[in-house]
Amino acid sequence: MVQVDVFWSYGLGAGFALAAARQLAVAPRAQKLLDNPYFSRTLLYLALLFGPSGMILLWQFPDWETMQVARQLTDLPTWLGVGFAVTNITQGMLGFYLCRALIQRGKTYQAFWHLLLAYFGMLFILVHGWDGTGYQRFLSADHQVFAQWHWGLALQWLVSPVALTLYTMGCVLLPVLFKWMVDWLNAGRELSVAQLPVRDGVPSGMATIATLLALVFGLVLGSAIVISAAVHAFGWALGAVFGVAWLLFLGLPQWGVARWFYRQLLWLPTPQVEARGQLAKA
């Protein structure tokens, strides 16, 4: 969707950078971005898969792709279509670039939050939108359905042409995404990097994919729903304050949920295990 893909693209770039975090940590800082093989493959994914998928959806379903704002392609200015196509690529490049910079400075957990906040922005818009009807706009195949929306029509969306197109695209985009991220994470776990030590054992590829899905559709989507409910209940001002507090609660404590996902994704030892290892070396 036009409103969310700018966040999704950024999250994809950040996710690819995190998957190659250990490799990026040991790469020469003077290395040009285009000389980095992980960035090059990220760029290929964005330009050849993700970007075109967005344009297909905009062309075939302009009302759904614009969250029911436009009725047909002629309602959209040319510059918006061009900007949509370009930012689907450039935002992912930016996400990778900024996360690589953080990783090379030893701030990998901050880079992880770029991934979290990008997906939060995407999912909050889908859940809440700008007027509290984001989920209704998403679960409406076209503007006519949205105008008379109810949960029965939402169930029909699951077999609508929009949904069937998304399923087909997912069969192409997701296997490549998961394959590359799992391969990069596993390759990185074989490296010895002081700032990103590896715990004993190696998780299976399915375990890594499950962690990614639980992170996005559990922690992040759940947070988007909770904060949307707060905005509905208390208004935008108090809801935003609650949202910031909620995200800080998840991310700041050493044993917070966000740090748990961070350690699981990168297969990092817990602080206690790491401390015991340091004492043993001493």
Rank of each mutant, 00 (worst) to 15 (best):
A85R: 01
A85M: 05
A85H: 02
V86I: 13
V86W: 02
V86M: 08
V86F: 08
T87G: 01
T87K: 07
T87L: 02
I89P: 00
T90I: 05
T90Y: 00
T90F: 06
Q91L: 09
Q91Y: 06
Q91P: 00
Q91G: 00
Q91C: 03
Q91V: 02
G92V: 05
G92R: 05
G92M: 03
G92L: 04
M93P: 01
M93H: 00
M93Q: 01
L94G: 06
L94E: 04
L94H: 03
G95S: 04
G95H: 06
G95R: 04
F96Y: 14
F96V: 07
Y97C: 02
Y97F: 15
L98M: 13
L98T: 14
C99V: 15
R100C: 05
R100V: 05
R100S: 09
A101S: 15
A101W: 09
A101G: 15
L102G: 01
L102F: 05
I103G: 04
I103N: 06
Q104L: 04
Q104M: 07
Q104N: 11
Q104V: 07
Q104K: 06
R105Q: 15
R105G: 13
G106L: 02
G106F: 01
K107H: 15
T108F: 06
T108H: 08
T108M: 10
T108G: 07
Y109I: 09
Y109C: 01
Y109L: 09
Y109F: 15
Q110R: 15
Q110N: 11
Q110V: 12
A111L: 03
A111M: 12
W113R: 14
W113A: 02
W113E: 08
H114D: 05
H114L: 14
H114G: 12
H114P: 02
L115S: 03
L115A: 08
L115Y: 14
L116P: 00
L116C: 09
L117D: 11
L117N: 14
L117P: 05
A118T: 00
Y119T: 04
F120Y: 15
G121A: 08
G121V: 07
G121C: 11
M122T: 01
M122G: 06
M122C: 12
L123V: 00
F124W: 11
L126C: 08
L126S: 08
L126I: 10
V127I: 14
V127G: 03
V127M: 11
